[in-house]
Simulated assay, not measured.
Amino acid sequence: MTTVVVVDDQFLIRDGVAAILDAEAGFTVVGTAADGAEAVGLITTLAPDVALMDIRMPEVDGIEATRRIVESGSPTRILILTTFGADDLVLSALRAGASGYLLKDAPRESLVAAIRAVAAGDAAVEKGVLARLVQGQPVQHHPEAVSALRRLSPREHEVLRLVAQGATNPEIARSLYIGETTVKTHVSRIQTKLTARDRVHLVVLAHHAGLG
């Protein structure tokens, strides 16, 4: 059972999304919040698997709330659910630690699939957005990140480099002439070795290590 908290300052959207998920097999909405500050407290207390987080909210917005939750060490993964698809907002949310984003006009099936992906440690992000996450930023060489990458095998380095470029699992499989199942296994092992939350975090770590 996947536990979810829904965060949105609009009552109809908040309760509507909660009702949709409660009616979906495999999901339980354990709480709702109307702003970012309330969300931080609720998520700290309940530790749900996934939090659906709006961006534009009074006082503490969704980006700042996401940053606080991630920095607290919470295991909860954040999926941004917003009406705003502008790159700067989306990328700010991902850099704050969100595992993905979805527009509010997405169909029910997309919402369910995105939550399941994020809960499983994957990223629910459109193709190309992962690459833009670090595009235009100066290449970094954080000693901790460089040291962490030494734990990876040569093949895992290859896989991580392609992940950092925004490649999907099927694209990685074709590029390296291996099966998709093998790619998934490599990505899972890389996340474990680097203690990465998800695919988005892998992209950031790779950039910090100068890989990409």
Rank of each mutant, 00 (worst) to 15 (best):
A131C: 00
A19V: 07
E171L: 07
D9M: 10
I178Q: 02
T45S: 15
D35I: 10
L152P: 11
A148Q: 13
R150E: 14
A23P: 07
A65T: 06
T185D: 14
G166C: 10
Q137T: 12
I115Y: 02
L94V: 08
Q135E: 15
S99N: 07
E144Q: 15
A123Q: 02
E71L: 12
E109V: 10
A39R: 09
L133K: 13
K193M: 08
G128P: 11
A18W: 05
S110E: 13
A124R: 02
D87P: 00
V204L: 15
T32L: 03
D122Y: 09
V50G: 01
P107I: 00
G166T: 10
T3P: 03
E156L: 07
A106W: 01
L149W: 02
A18S: 15
A51G: 12
R67W: 00
G179Q: 07
L160Y: 10
I190H: 12
H141A: 15
E171C: 11
E180F: 03
A98C: 03
V159C: 10
A18C: 11
Y177W: 08
I172R: 07
T83L: 11
G128W: 03
R161M: 14
Q10V: 15
L111A: 05
G100H: 02
L149N: 04
E71V: 08
L162N: 03
P154W: 07
P138A: 09
G73T: 04
T195W: 04
H141W: 11
S110M: 08
V29K: 06
V4G: 02
G212C: 10
E71Y: 01
D22P: 04
V5Q: 01
V125P: 05
H142T: 12
F11L: 12
M53Y: 03
I63N: 01
L194E: 03
A120W: 06
L52H: 06
L102Q: 06
E156V: 08
I178S: 09
A51K: 08
G85K: 00
T185H: 14
T2R: 12
H157K: 13
V50D: 06
E109R: 07
A86L: 09
T168P: 11
P58Y: 08
D198K: 07
L202N: 04
Y177C: 11
R150A: 14
S72A: 15
V6T: 02
Q137P: 00
